[in-house]
């Protein structure tokens, strides 16, 4: 059974059909790419998956359980985490605190945890955050305010913050957006390391070299519809994809930093 099974998902905003009957299956342990021109519905798909908007049609199964229209906090507790294209770090908190803030998994009110301050459990949690800072290359940035970090570090911090929730499925929204080729390469290394223990990833990206570098399979969206799907080598040489996607990209250079929706 696929970890994520999307059947005929649609989402309309007024008269605009942002997603129109998307079918996708993502297998456990796969790194799945999601590409398409601006406004093609990639981020909308993420928002529907994470419960920010309910879908207006279709069905989504995460590990066999339906999650369409389920509130975001419940979906998050089922093991789904994401990063944001336009970064939602808390700027006036340190890198450490941003990760630390995300580190809560169990339901319950947390009143009991007040008594655990300074205890063994809390130390274990702190160690876990330190380890993540280490692994994402942010150890020296530990005490810097998130708002003061350079963009590549902010994107790394977003990933670290999603990882602390130990997700089964991790959604990355333009992890290399606005980065130089050098920084993009470093990001590819990090993503491969994140995926190494068999974690399932869905990655939105405009940078084709990154996508073909890290993805097992990918899918192309255009105007809310699926155009092509398959291994990178085949999809990226598909003439229809080249025509629709890259042809339009040529006249539209706003590229990475403008919003998707």
């Amino acid at each position: 059974m696929a970890l994520l099974d999307i059947n005929g998902i649609g989402r309309r905003f007024g008269a605009v059909e942002a997603l129109d009957g998307i079918d996708l299956r993502v297998e456990e342990g796969e790194v799945f790419g999601l590409i398409g021109p601006n406004g093609s519905g990639k981020t909308t798909l993420f928002n529907v998956l994470t419960g920010v908007y309910p879908p207006s049609a279709g069905e989504i199964l995460l590990d066999g359980r339906p999650i369409g229209g389920v509130p975001p906090e419940r979906i998050a507790r089922m093991g789904l985490a994401r990063t944001f294209q336009n970064l939602r770090l808390i700027p006036h908190m340190s890198a450490f605190e941003n990760i630390w803030l995300a580190q809560h998994r169990r339901p319950g009110m947390g009143l009991r945890d007040i008594l655990a301050v300074g205890g063994r459990k809390e130390r274990a949690r702190r160690d876990e955050v330190e380890t993540l800072l280490e692994r994402t290359g942010l150890a020296t940035r530990r005490d810097a305010f998130a708002g003061d970090l350079p963009l590549p570090d902010q994107r790394r911090l977003e990933i670290a913050r999603a990882l602390v929730r130990q997700p089964r499925l991790l959604l990355l929204d333009e992890p290399a957006g606005g980065m130089t080729p050098m920084e993009t390469q470093e990001m590819a290394t990090l993503i491969r390391a994140v995926a190494a223990p068999g974690r399932t990833l869905i990655v939105i990206e405009h940078k084709m070299d990154l996508i073909s570098d890290i993805c097992d399979r990918l899918c192309v969206l255009d105007f809310g519809r699926k155009i092509a799907e398959g291994p990178p080598g085949r999809v990226l040489s598909d003439p229809e994809v080249l025509d629709i996607y890259l042809g339009r990209e040529a006249d539209d250079n706003s590229g990475d930093d403008s919003g998707d929706d």
Binding site: T50, A76, A81, F84, I90, M93, L101, R105, D113
Partner: peptide
Amino acid sequence: LMERSRLGSIVRTIGADRLLAETQGINV
């Protein structure tokens, strides 16, 4: 104690960014 505990981090996350809190599994 609250500020150092999970409760404090949850309250601060909700205060800083409600949608972020929801996507982190917090029942706002």
